[in-house]
Design a protein around this nucleic acid. Structure first.
Length: 543
RNA sequence: UGAGCUAUGGUGUAAUGGUAGCACUACAGAUUUUGGUUCUGCCUGUGUAGGUUCGAGUCCUGCUAGCUCAACCA
């Protein structure tokens, strides 16, 4: 049980909010969701589920110049894909009328004023954390004048930036957010939902808590950087005499070898360092989806990393573990050769083709079996043969035996090289009595390798991904450099592979997740077609 | 240098004054027609100095380190 659940359980016990639990996930629709958001989604929906409450999806759309419906759609899709359903879908912009009324109320109560200072003057007047600020010369206007000015701001009489509405709190507060925070700014911009109805827009601090309040949120869970905003959150709820949700902060997720900043992720997309928001190397939810991560794997990851208040950097190996753990149980096995070299069985009949029995998933008997063709000439992995093999290497070498999975035990006799010294053919003999299922096949051999028949396999494109950045903390760079200098130049490698001929487009695109035996987990990319199969490596098997 | 927050193995996270546990990682072994899976074993930890207490990771004080805050962003 994490500290947030502890707080909630205490609140339930004390009958706070009549024992009700309600949370919300409040993204700003200005970017795609990433694995860090997934943690927050799992937390917010998770605790509500656990305590019989509900969770709203609320788009925090108070800044029309940054927000867009494209992002709204992707956010909805990603949350659903993760396996969560919100009780209601709201927008902070739904509350603009109410927020406006509340602003007038605070003016009436002498708790807000219109400031005519320039942005620079306001910034200067705020002072610095170590020294108090100074009060605005407009701070003590009459209620009537403030009301008149604020209404004219709303009516569009003033240009952008000419005036703001500020809460009258304390210019000497050690908390910078208490030094008369801005509640409303003038922005003659079209909003993705309210169009041109408004030319003044509320700031986060004057919108978020009130939105929570209107919806009856009981526990408003957010990340640590909002901790210093909490006194303000509380102040507005008190000043307005409205339902007062409890803001609770937790440490956001950080993953090594990647970045989580929306701004930087956007830059990677805009400047074509990746192929889009859903590039499988991106830590976005759509990127992970295209990479082949499953919702269950991500949910389990979110559960495993835990929830606390200290800064953390999670090792990507944990994410990878979660993917393997889920995929191992569910992924259909198939054989694919990514780096082929020809294996010729000299004593195997020239045109013979035998159908062998193969298991679809050793972890799940209900996945059944399939027949695969076997023939004299096969593709095997180049790495499964080594000319100078030491004791630690127990696959194929001259005079050594291995088992061809689901087929025969073979012994390498000799190899053929081209003029560059590169191996072009590996020759071997097979023992007909060692066919899988026969008594002699139980003979101990050190290794079993996968294969695909040269004449009975099909080509496929395989995309191998490495970490997007070559250092654990990409933001930590030397002077004069940026996170872009830490990009891994080899994060994408495209291979032409041979896969089982039975792996049709139909099969690949419906089953989607596969384990290429002895290699890793692969996902059928949406770029696939009847003509060409494309697979993304989700994660390799543990080495 | 003002305010707030945080310090537990390599990485995360528990222990709510009473045996420092779990997961990942690393390593070792067993099993295995995937060098996968499964199983077993194993290494490494309470930032620091005091104090309270029969007993402190936990409470108190000082120190140190890290993070956050000075957008008309969220």
């Amino acid at each position: 049980m994490n500290f947030i659940e502890q707080i909630i359980e205490e609140d339930i016990q004390n009958r706070k909010n009549d024992g009700r639990v309600q949370t919300r996930f409040p993204p700003e629709p200005n970017g795609y969701l990433h694995i860090g958001h997934a943690k927050s989604i799992c937390l917010n929906f998770g605790v509500a589920q656990k305590y019989g409450g509900k969770t709203n999806l609320r788009f925090d759309d108070t800044n029309p110049v940054k927000e867009d419906t494209e992002y709204v759609d992707s956010i909805r899709e990603d949350i659903k894909w993760l396996g969560f359903q919100w009780a209601a879908e709201y927008y902070a912009s739904d509350y603009f009328d109410q927020l406006y009324l509340w602003a007038e109320q605070l003016i009436q109560d002498g708790l807000a004023y219109v400031d005519d200072q320039t942005q620079e003057e306001i910034s200067k007047g705020r002072g610095v954390p170590t020294a108090p600020g100074t009060e605005s010369p407009y701070r003590n206007r009459s209620v009537e004048e403030n009301l008149d000015l604020f209404r004219r701001m709303k009516a569009g009489e003033f240009p952008d930036g000419s005036r703001v509405l500020r809460a009258k709190i304390d210019m000497a507060s050690p908390n910078m957010h208490f030094r008369d925070p801005i509640m409303y700014r003038i922005l003659h911009a079209e909003h993705h939902r309210t169009g041109n109805k408004w030319c003044i827009y509320p700031m986060y601090d004057f919108a978020h808590g009130q939105s929570d309040s209107i919806e009856g949120i009981t526990h408003s869970i957010c990340t640590l950087e909002f901790e210093v905003h909490r006194p303000l959150y509380d102040w507005f709820c008190e000043a307005l005499h409205i339902h007062h949700p409890q803001q609770i902060e937790f440490a956001r997720l950080n993953l090594n070898y990647t970045i989580m900043s929306k701004r930087k992720l956007l830059q990677l997309v805009k400047e074509n360092y990746v192929r889009g928001w859903d590039d499988p190397r991106m830590p976005t939810i759509c990127g992970l989806r295209r990479r082949g991560y499953t919702p269950a794997a991500i949910r389990n990851f979110a559960e495993t990393v835990g929830v606390a208040k200290r800064d953390n950097i999670i090792d990507v190996s944990l994410l990878e573990f979660c993917a393997r753990e889920d995929l191992n149980k569910t992924a259909i096995r198939t054989m694919a050769v990514l780096d082929p070299v020809k294996l010729i069985i000299d004593n195997y009949p020239e045109d013979q083709v035998e159908m062998m029995d193969a298991v679809n998933n050793p972890e799940d008997e209900s996945a059944g079996t399939r027949k695969i063709p076997f023939a004299k000439e096969l593709w095997i992995e180049r790495a499964d043969f080594r000319e100078n093999a030491d004791k630690k290497f127990y696959r194929l070498s001259i005079d050594r035996e291995v088992r061809l999975k689901y087929a025969y035990i073979i012994k390498c006799t000799h190899i053929v090289k081209d003029e560059n010294g590169e191996i072009t053919e590996i020759h071997c003999t097979y023992d007909p009595l060692t066919k899988s299922g026969m008594p002699d096949s139980n003979r101990k051999v050190k290794a079993t390798i996968h294969w695909v028949p040269v004449k009975h396999s099909k080509a496929a494109e395989v995309r191998l991904f490495d970490r997007l950045f070559s250092v654990p903390d990409p933001d930590n760079c030397e002077e004069g450099q940026t996170f872009l200098d830490n990009l891994n130049p080899n994060s994408l490698e495209i291979k032409q592979a041979w896969v089982e001929e039975g792996l049709t487009y139909e099969k690949a695109s419906t089953i989607k997740h596969f384990q290429f035996e002895r290699i890793g987990y692969f996902y059928c990319d949406p770029d696939s077609s009847e003509e060409k199969l494309v697979f993304n490596k989700t994660v390799s098997l543990k080495q």
